[in-house]
């Protein structure tokens, strides 16, 4: 596990926190500008197989943008993105691959769930299986039903998103991403849009996903949850990784900005 902001990228070398597994995600020198404003100033991040990386920090620090570059929902202005063998190099470079192929290795869960409102819970899950992976209808429905069962919503398979609570919708969204058998799951503040009493059920499902050995990158404000699952913790501030560290990070962090943020949140 190596994370660093660009200026000191070389210094940390490739020290790994968990020491486990192959590299699943490798971001190198990621910069991102919206118009004249650069929001990511060259970020490196490596995620190994089975690792749970937690990213936190104040709003506007670039954490969601960084997460969204992993599946190229945000195209980096500079730097390269690699997920397993799929590489997406800098604009104009030779290694520029297909975003669609890269995305098939990556599952994503959004803050606003983004379920398809015109489809039932089951068909929200089957859509990608059938259209992107060309799975036959019967098999797709069976796999979707299994995925819904994993998040405890099998009996709501025929319901539409509008007929589900926020927590249930987010669990369907997790099932939808999981059913595609991704190599890494991205969570972009998955509980931030939920009523407080619905947060628990979503975290429970995420905990189960983590226990299954899934590689995860989680942007969250739930610091107690972060502390619990985070094999590697990344604090972002003003478009760079201000501080990062393995388990125990929350007690051992030294950067005054990190401490200040945690004091404000906790």
């Amino acid at each position: 596990m190596t994370t660093d902001s660009a200026p000191s990228a070389a210094a940390a070398g490739h020290a790994t926190s968990t020491g486990s597994g192959d590299v699943v995600v490798c971001l190198e020198g990621i910069r991102k500008s919206f118009g004249q404003t650069e929001v990511l100033h060259g970020v490196d991040l490596t995620v190994h197989s089975g690792e749970h990386v937690v990213i936190f920090g104040p709003s506007g620090s670039g954490k969601s943008t960084l997460l969204r570059t992993i599946n190229l929902l945000e195209e980096p202005s500079a730097g390269s993105v690699r997920v397993l063998d799929k590489e997406y190099g800098p604009a104009g470079g030779k290694r520029r691959g297909s975003p669609v192929e890269l995305r098939r290795l990556v599952g994503m869960v959004f803050q606003q769930f983004n379920l398809f409102p015109h489809l039932t819970a089951l068909n929200n899950v089957t859509l990608a299986l059938r259209s992107a992976q060309k799975v036959k209808r019967d098999e797709a429905e069976e796999r979707a039903a299994h995925a819904l069962r994993q998040v405890g919503l099998l009996r709501f398979a025929a319901r539409y998103p509008a007929e589900l609570s926020g927590g249930q919708q987010q669990r369907v969204a997790i099932a939808r991403a999981l059913s595609l058998d991704p190599k890494v799951m991205l969570f972009d503040e998955p509980t931030s849009a939920l009523d407080p009493e619905l947060v628990g059920e979503v975290l429970t499902v995420m905990r189960k996903v983590a226990e299954s050995g899934m590689t995860m990158v989680v942007v969250t404000h739930e610091l107690s949850f972060a502390r619990e699952i985070g094999d590697y913790n990344v604090f972002m501030d003003e478009g760079v990784i201000a501080e990062s560290g393995p388990r125990g990070f929350f007690d051992e962090c030294t950067n005054p900005r990190t401490k200040q943020f945690m004091a404000a949140v906790l």
């Binding site: 669609v100 995305r103 994503m108 959004f110 606003q112 398809f116 992107a132 991403a177």
Partner: peptide, 25 residues
């Protein structure tokens, strides 16, 4: 915008996202 993003994130081709996700709505 999240509807398109969700479709893309699932690995659907942008044209399919349009036909299956955006157009019906």
């Amino acid at each position: 915008r999240g509807q398109r993003e969700a479709g893309l994130a699932l690995g659907l081709h942008p044209i399919r996202v349009f036909v299956r996700v955006i157009l019906p709505q």
